[in-house]
Amino acid sequence: MTPHECFRRVHRRLHMAAYLVPRVNRAAWREEWIAELSYAARQSPMLAVALADGLVRDAIMVRRLHVARRIAAIDWEAPEACLRVLTFCFAVLSLASAAYPQVRNLVLSRWGVGAFFCFTVLAVLALPSTVVTSRFSACKAYSGDAATMAQRWSRWRFLAAKLVLSVLSCYLLAVHVTWLFQRLLGAQADWLLIACGLLFNVIAVSWAFTDQRQRCPTCMRSLSGAARLGPPSWSLLDSNATEEMCDRGHGLLHQPQWQTSWFEYARWLQLDSTWSELFKR
């Protein structure tokens, strides 16, 4: 191989591998490699070619570390993370629907519109199921909290966004499932869509409400650090509950393990600003 060929080969590899590196690190990464390659090329052009063998693996490692850092930086407790995950699911299902012409035509047809209407009705009918699945009333726990009007409003907006995104994702998922079995079931596939609609909506709607109840009413972050209170064997003699708290120190959610006459509903204990010192980061 002539030195000119070596140089061209190294240059091509460097150019290709650079695309794998995240944009923020690309310039520095390229600079480091150019320096190393020119140092090696001064000794022998073939040495530079051998060194360039590691370009792609190094670029992949830089990308992997970048992704790992970004994932580690996600604040999973924050409401934004929850909405981002739901939006991602919805986007993936929408793209999957658009990718298959049969599914796309099914969604956009009159049948699709009718199915969506049916699905929305099923989602509304699924609402009472949350009374069974969510433990001892979601709303009562927060009736006495110190959240401002704006905070209350954002809480409802968050719940609505969760419901809309999860119901829409469930609809697309149900269409995909129905389409998969359409050949096998023929006209009976409509019943499968209704069955899927009922099942998926019950799961999605009760998840949305349960998740809402597990969040701090002030900042909407997921409550954490669940602590059990009282021995279970004393359930008839003493209160038996689980306590979870907001990691920003806004309050505690006290949930009874069993509904009793003296401890019927979950209670939210709002902590005032004097506690903030304890939760400082």
Binding site: E36, Y39, L51, G54, R57, I60, M61
Partner: peptide
């Protein structure tokens, strides 16, 4: 430097730099 470590250890660049 990565290149020097390659020299001493005899490991390929695809191992050293990552």
């Amino acid at each position: 430097y990565g290149f020097d470590i390659m020299d001493v250890t005899g490991l390929p660049s695809g191992t050293i730099y990552p």
